[in-house]
Amino acid sequence: MELTLSRVTKKFGKKTALDSISVTLREGVCGILGANGSGKSTLMRILATVMRPTDGSILLDGKDIFQLDADYRTLIGYLPQQVGYYRNFSAERFLHYMASLKGLTKAQANKKVEEMLQWVGMEQHRHEKIGKYSGGMKQRIGIAQALLNDPKILIVDEPTAGLDPKERIRFRNLLAATATNRIVLLSTHIVSDLEYLANNIMIIKDGHFVQMDTPTALLKAMNGNVWTVATTNELLADYQQNYKVGNIIRRENGIVVRLLADEKPSRQAVKAVPNLEDLYLYHFDDLNETRPISLHQN
């Protein structure tokens, strides 16, 4: 199964939210990484067919998804960024409603709803009104409904935003457990969501496609660009001005900063193993806006 996007563009009036995105997606988890407002949700809405691109096409194994129409929609599960629900529906009723929208028979729905309620650990709360749920509980019902039809393409938009760390881990594990044999698209601006989970990471920025690769490859490319430096309070400001600075760890005898630099930034600097946070910092640090090639400064 192959989802091919070519020159997908979305404009809202004068604003271009997505600018000619071309990429091919295959089975496995693809994390879409981008800062707020970079167009992640717009891309996912288009893939979920709740929005139409202004230009460009999306083909599933060679067929246009908007032409496939209902045949495409039977294949997808979509969890939007802002989960919607009816306040006065119980979780169970809502899932049954979604099941009938997804064309499950009564018998299939009974089985699947039961399975999903257990899987997301909501069976004790099934009769409670969704309006009374916490954010994490709503999110769990959201992922449950997305999976009711066993979708071949699962689209989840920032599912962990607003969850506490425990809920976040739980959610990630739920997602990891379903990732086989489907295309899973997961957007996030939280890099730790993607660690261990994503087979591929796609980076978009201001509506532009930046790059897509496996996490290993992306990190390997950054080898030699990440450093830790032990320094003092006085010198810290200097580093912050000249480099993209990540974690700053205060020790008893001084400070250790993690920063990005093409070349060894100072004599005491030690090479560090790049992680996804460095990758994010590399692409999305605010410094970037004013100094696009700060990495190459010295």
Partner: peptide, 15 residues
């Protein structure tokens, strides 16, 4: 309610 996001993305959500 935002449920339209789900409805419109389902098999029967259009017709």
């Amino acid at each position: 309610s935002g449920v339209d996001q789900y409805i419109l993305s389902t098999q029967h959500g259009r017709k």
